[in-house]
């Protein structure tokens, strides 16, 4: 009982949004992060799905509230409203699909205009286990990320490689910004939330949200 209570306490709440082309593996990435396993027999996301997890970064408990969005172009009129207040954005592409990489700039523009001005953005090259089908090199993507001043990592939602790192890396950057005084968590509208005053009371939240992540 005590441990469960402890588990639900957090210092900050960060909203993350996962965007990128359809089929890049956004939902599988989220599922791997929350459940620590790959979900076979997947379905695609219609609109938005959620997940949340508390991670421990820099001596703080941080609750990540993650919004996983539909990738099909036709859903942009719907998903645009989900960016609001996001403190972190994951732009996912498929390293075996050149088109999904080429669309990175569009997604980046969406993230910069629709989320918070100081949103921390990471680009994620997913499916890095499929080395023989690779269509985008690590170097190329890493340069692109550098030019655009965003973070970059490659992951495999299948094996789990790099997945947790992505979320921790972004969370750490946001945390640093807060501790450097670049972001005042108390003035945030809904991007990050200070939860230090709270005694955990959302005991159902975690299990609930992991279930909804039907990758």
């Amino acid at each position: 009982m005590a441990s469960e209570k402890e588990k639900d306490q957090y210092d900050y709440l960060f909203k993350f949004i996962i965007i990128g082309d359809a089929g890049a593996g956004k939902s599988c990435l989220l599922h791997q992060f929350i459940e620590n396993r790959y979900k076979k027999g997947s379905s695609h996301t219609i609109g938005v799905e959620f997940g949340s997890k508390i991670i421990h970064v820099g001596g703080r408990n941080i609750k990540l509230q993650i919004w996983d969005t539909a990738g099909q172009e036709r859903y942009r009129s719907v998903t645009r409203s989900y960016y609001r207040g996001a403190a972190g954005a994951l732009i996912v592409y498929d390293i075996t699909n050149r088109d999904s990489y080429n669309h990175l700039v569009n997604w980046l523009q969406d993230a910069r205009t629709l989320a918070r001005a100081d949103t921390s953005i990471i680009t994620v090259g997913n499916k890095c286990d499929m080395k023989d089908k690779r269509a985008v090199t690590f170097l190329e993507a890493s340069r692109c990320a550098q030019e655009n001043d965003i973070l970059f990592l490659e992951t495999s939602a299948l094996t789990g490689e790099g997945v947790e790192d992505v979320f921790i890396k972004v969370a750490r950057v946001i945390l640093n910004k807060i501790e450097d005084g670049l972001i005042d968590p108390n003035t945030m509208v809904s991007g990050t939330h200070t939860g230090s005053q709270r005694i955990g009371s959302d005991s159902g939240g975690e299990a609930m949200s992991s279930k909804t992540c039907s990758c």
């Binding site: 959620f50 509230q65 939330h193 159902g204 939240g205 609930m208 909804t212």
Partner: peptide, 21 residues
């Protein structure tokens, strides 16, 4: 009632999840 127990930032997500489940 699930939403009311939570901070404002978490209410929307909780309400959607609760109804879907």
């Amino acid at each position: 009632s699930a939403a009311e127990r939570l901070e404002a930032e978490e209410r929307g997500m909780a309400a959607v999840s609760c109804i879907l489940q």
